[in-house]
């Protein structure tokens, strides 16, 4: 049987992925988990680009943007991990709600 895959199904998967990412970013205290949520969001966006490249009018530019986003995500992950590592060294925690030195 040939599985007929439409644009809508891609978008639904992407939306679920995005929601999971948001949920992770909002609900997790651990900075690493927040980072992983951000990765999910970025990948949801990538999936959309790819889908639009296949079924939409973006053509190759969709795929190029997706490659860019992957690179960007890698760079971002590297920077963020470095920050988290520093925070941990300074404050002995990676919980984002405990890092509130700018308050007051």
């Amino acid at each position: 049987m040939s599985l007929h895959v439409e644009l809508g199904q891609f978008l639904v998967v992407s939306a679920i992925l995005f929601s999971l990412g948001i949920y992770g970013v909002i609900s997790r205290k651990n900075a690493i988990m927040v980072l992983m949520g951000i990765e999910l969001i970025l990948n949801a966006a990538n999936m959309n680009f790819i889908a639009f490249a296949r079924f939409g009018v973006m053509n190759l530019s969709g795929q190029v943007v997706a490659v860019f986003v992957i690179i960007l995500a890698a760079a971002e992950a590297a920077v963020l991990l470095a920050i988290v590592l520093n925070i941990y060294q300074q404050l002995n925690t990676v919980n984002v709600d405990e890092v509130d030195k700018l308050k007051n």
Partner: peptide
């Protein structure tokens, strides 16, 4: 203005 990024994200959302 709690200083918690997650709260802001909720608001943004």
């Amino acid at each position: 203005q709690t200083g918690k990024v997650q709260t802001y994200i909720v608001f943004a959302l």
